[in-house]
Amino acid sequence: MNSRVAGSLNKRARHLAFAPYAIFLLVFLVWPGLYVFRSAFDQGSAPKNPMIEAVTGQYRSSFIFSLRLSFVSAILGLVIGATVAVALMRLSHVRGLRNVVVGYSAVAANMGGIPLAFAFLAAFGMQGLATRLLKGINIDLIGWGFRISDFWGIVLVYLYFQIPLMTLVIVPALDGLRRTWSEAAQSLGASTRQYWRFVALPILTPALLGGFLLLVANAFAAYATAFALSAGSSKLVTVQIRFFLQGETITGKTNLGYALAAWMVIITAFLVLGFQVLSRRAERWRR
């Protein structure tokens, strides 16, 4: 056996090693994904193409509701998360504080689902502890129309994982700001404000923007929390999709659920792609 044959055999063996993983992804991720798109474009006997139907009428307003919720919770998450990160930087002399906050952020960023909804129901539900406490000092949330299952209620809950997620993105980005940049800017005559405006902020922008997109995608895909808050009646796209799979559906529109899912994939794909591009740029600058 000459070496070339051995080499190619080796190569084949090498590819074989990736086969289980590749097949697994094909079967359980790619195939379902393609199935969604195939069905989404399959009009069947329906009067309208499902992909078009999915972005008109009540479904359109569902998407708008979901996206608005995602953007608002992401912007607030960005602002508050960044404020926390800057506060940590200011308090860098307090030993251990940073580790505690960052450590808890990792925990809270992973929180969500039913238990989190329960916690907020207990605090801010109609009879919630915080709701009644605030009413005692003349802050009547319910009287003002606040409901934990409505838009701002869900935003309040989502912030529980959005803020720490942003903190986790920003803290390393702030660490990446080199002291020499601020000193160079100062020696060139820049004030602290000018340093932030012309140097630090532009350098942080990709990380901030990337983190923002990540937060949008994160909120957009969320399902369980809103479902539990609203007892299954939310306007969110994710909750709408549920109806179609469970057969609680208007006949002739079976593929509409797939179309909603397909649009979700398209939107998140753009968000994630944007995140990847931006974080790659941030990475390149850090060298």
Binding site: L25, F28, L29, W31, P32, G33, L34, Y35, V36, S39, A217, F220, A221, Y223, T238, I241, R242, F244, L245, G257, Y258, A261, A262, M264, V265, T268, A269, V272, Q276
Partner: peptide, 21 residues
């Protein structure tokens, strides 16, 4: 490939999975 699950939200994944399987 490990970031793909971010692109396909769980709800879309399960819908496709149920239909396909």
């Amino acid at each position: 490939s490990s970031t793909l699950p971010f692109v396909v939200p769980a709800i879309a994944l399960v819908v496709g999975f149920a239909g396909a399987f």
